[in-house]
Design a protein around this nucleic acid. Structure first.
Lengths: 188, 188
DNA sequence: GCGGTTTGTAAGCAACTGCTTACAACGCTA
DNA sequence: TAGCGTTGTAAGCAGTTGCTTACAAACCGC
């Protein structure tokens, strides 16, 4: 057997990334309050003191997790498809999908600086969604669409309520997009 | 001055009710994890040991809070008006309104037995909402309406995103009920 | 090789958590 | 009034939390 470097040694960037990944996974799974820095460090295979050296605090780490994951989708999706894409990526519970939304939804009890990130993230989504209608209350309608997206995520991932939790993504998309079109098209 | 009994003395029922009220308020304000039994006892003006004597555990107390508040609205509203009423009661941020939904939304990171209460509460709402349509996927459509309600509450109360957070209740109702009608009326 | 910086580690601190226990005060019944 | 279950209180226990500190080991320029 060739000797493989099982343990990452003296690579600050890799350690930081590992901590970020571990934190994202755990925050998504348990929420902010029920995730401990010791758990994050253990999953990342790093010492917990490094978490504070690289991120400053658990709070700051949470902010970075939220900011990193949230902006990804907005940046890589054309406006017209954002609603469908966001909805679909939320519905496809397959492995490997981005779980930032879960972290968001499971940490609603947590105020502090992360609340600002949450709000800003919402702003960015809503801003894009608002371009889809020419009604004079476009921003409000966009907020309602965003609220629907979040609510669907809440019921599916957190509450786990059936039949929505394991409903066919296509069926859900058809229903939601149909109603959303009504909301966006009728001028105010 | 006549002597008033400022301190409640030896009244188990009153003490228990005070604890329940205090818990409901604090859970709604901070969520489950960030509310301590010491705080609840302090707000209720009671000793924290009594909390455990009367409710058994913090978890069980949370369950009672959720169950008590949630069923109230369902029981007192006719099915056809549930959507509008629930929406309106959520939008009217005035004083004294029931804040059980906030407790629900701020405690999404908390699993355990309360998750069952959350789910069951959702079942009851969805069951009523499902009677509003005759589509063969009525349950799914009802779940989507429920999700929208929760999402709107989330964006308004937790995220505080504008313009939805301080939007006119009538305007929101008009938009949501219009789109919801589309969702419920079109048979599948 | 050598000094200094960067990276990783172990141990611990102080505060807080849910919960328990031992006990005092009260009020009803006999 | 004596006895006794109920209600309220003070103190503490054991475990966990975020975060800090003191130190060892690896790396880099010289």
């Amino acid at each position: 057997m060739t000797e493989e470097p099982q343990v990452r040694k003296r690579d600050a960037a890799a350690t930081k990334a590992a901590l970020l990944d571990a934190a994202a996974a755990l925050f998504a799974e348990r929420g902010f309050d029920r995730t401990t820095v010791r758990d994050i460090a253990k999953v990342a295979g790093a010492n917990q003191a490094l978490l504070f050296r690289y991120f400053g605090s658990k709070d700051a780490l949470f902010e970075e997790v939220l900011a990193r994951g949230g902006r990804e989708q907005i940046a890589t999706t054309p406006p017209g498809e954002l609603l469908g894409t966001a909805l679909r990526s939320m519905l496809e519970s397959d492995k490997g999908r981005d779980r930032t939304l879960d972290a968001y939804l499971r940490s609603t009890g947590h105020d502090s600086a992360a609340a600002a990130v949450r709000r800003q993230l919402g702003e960015e989504y809503a801003k894009v969604l608002a371009t889809l209608t020419d009604a004079d209350d476009a921003d409000l309608r966009a907020d309602l669409i965003l609220a629907w997206l979040l609510g669907i995520g809440l019921v599916r991932e957190i509450t786990g309520k059936e039949p929505l939790a394991s409903a066919d993504p296509d069926a859900v998309c058809r229903l939601v997009l149909g109603a959303a079109r009504t909301l966006l098209e009728r001028s105010g």
